[in-house]
Design a protein around this nucleic acid. Structure first.
Lengths: 131, 131
DNA sequence: CTTTCATCTGAGCAGATGCTCAGATATTAG
DNA sequence: CTAATATCTGAGCATCTGCTCAGATGAAAG
């Protein structure tokens, strides 16, 4: 049989065991993967995305400012911010009766920038060119 | 009345109209925002996240390889890839009976890298330190 | 042509998600 | 103290989402 490196065909478990092993070995473990996809899921809701871009542009805003800037009910904003805060996407700072929120760190800003650029002049044209 | 720049209090529509205007002006429009959050939503499902990190590490894999590498049914993998392809997150290339997928561009790789780093040694410790 | 294999697709269902509403909590003003 | 304001929270519901299953499609082999 020999160990032919690259042969197509997809039986047993997989066609390219080496690559598969490489992928499984270096990929994030279950827990880390959970955290990562949780972050993305948070950014994946339009309401929360709106809030985050408002913070990206506005710098630091309180709940009612965010509500006004995004056209969202304050209760909704508050709940959204709670989730974002729980995953350290945003950070809250209390000042009197207001709580001011901002993006937590440069990572988050980078994510927002990169993705916006990707969709703007990216490869984002909906395609289905495989077949 | 004068134009006092920064006064707390949150009536009328907002407490800090200037920042609000800044945020609303520079933020992505409805359509762009839809595309952006759609991208994030795609990355926010654990199954799809797994697939993407497998591609990030493995380079280029066919459907059955991805199924094996991620422990996911092939039908599920195929459907996930269809969504990812529709938003140009991955790209498919047919070779014989196999279809090989890879991450579309550097933007996607950057997103995966940045987020993984963010969760690893990031500010990601779940906190609720506002109150 | 028929068979085989890899991939794709549609339907149906269990589970998750976000918004709204009403009320609680916290902080400052009088 | 009480009143007022900003933010937070829990419950309920309408909606969406992803997985599974069965069958279709496309490409190569006999």
């Amino acid at each position: 049989m020999g160990t032919v490196a690259s042969l197509d065909g997809c039986a047993d478990p997989a066609a390219h065991p080496e690559k598969v092993r490489l992928a499984t070995a270096n990929a994030p473990g279950p827990e880390e993967l959970g955290r990562v996809s949780a972050i993305f899921k948070l950014l994946g809701d339009p309401t929360r995305t709106r809030l985050l871009y408002a913070l990206l542009e506005g710098g630091e805003l309180c709940v009612c400012d965010l509500a006004a800037a995004t056209g969202t009910a304050e209760a909704t904003v508050s709940q959204s911010l709670r989730m974002l805060r729980a995953s350290a996407v945003v950070t809250g700072r209390r000042d009197g009766r207001n709580v001011f929120y901002r993006l937590s760190d440069a990572h988050v800003r980078l994510l927002l920038d990169v993705t916006r650029e990707h969709t703007t002049h990216g490869t984002t044209a909906p395609r289905d060119d495989v077949r």
